[in-house]
Simulated scan of single mutants.
Amino acid sequence: MRMLHTMLRVGDLQRSINFYTEVMGMSLLRQKDYPKGEFTLAFLGYGDEADHTVLELTYNWGVSEYEMGTAYGHIAIEVDDVYQATAQAKEKGCKILREAGPMNAGSTIIAFLEDPDGYPIELIGADHVRT
Rank of each mutant, 00 (worst) to 15 (best):
L28A: 08
V10K: 07
G37D: 08
S64D: 14
M24R: 00
T21V: 13
Y72D: 11
L41S: 08
E67N: 11
Y66E: 10
M24L: 15
D48A: 15
V54K: 04
Y59V: 00
M26N: 01
K32D: 12
L13N: 15
V23E: 02
T53E: 08
Y34K: 05
L29W: 01
D33F: 01
Y59C: 01
R15S: 14
E49P: 06
Y34R: 06
G47N: 12
S16Q: 10
G47D: 07
R15G: 12
M68A: 14
T21G: 06
L55H: 02
D12C: 02
G73V: 11
F43D: 00
E56D: 10
M68F: 05
G47E: 03
K36S: 14
L29T: 14
L41N: 14
T53G: 11
Y66C: 07
G62M: 04
S27H: 11
M26T: 07
Y20K: 04
G37I: 07
G45S: 01
Y46P: 02
D12A: 04
M24N: 03
L44I: 12
S16A: 15
L57V: 03
M24P: 07
E49R: 07
Y34T: 12
K32R: 15
E49N: 05
D33E: 13
G73C: 10
T40F: 05
V63M: 12
R15K: 15
A42T: 06
L44G: 04
G62W: 03
D48P: 01
K32H: 09
T53C: 10
S16Y: 10
E56V: 10
E67Q: 12
G69I: 03
V23T: 11
G25K: 10
M24F: 13
M68P: 04
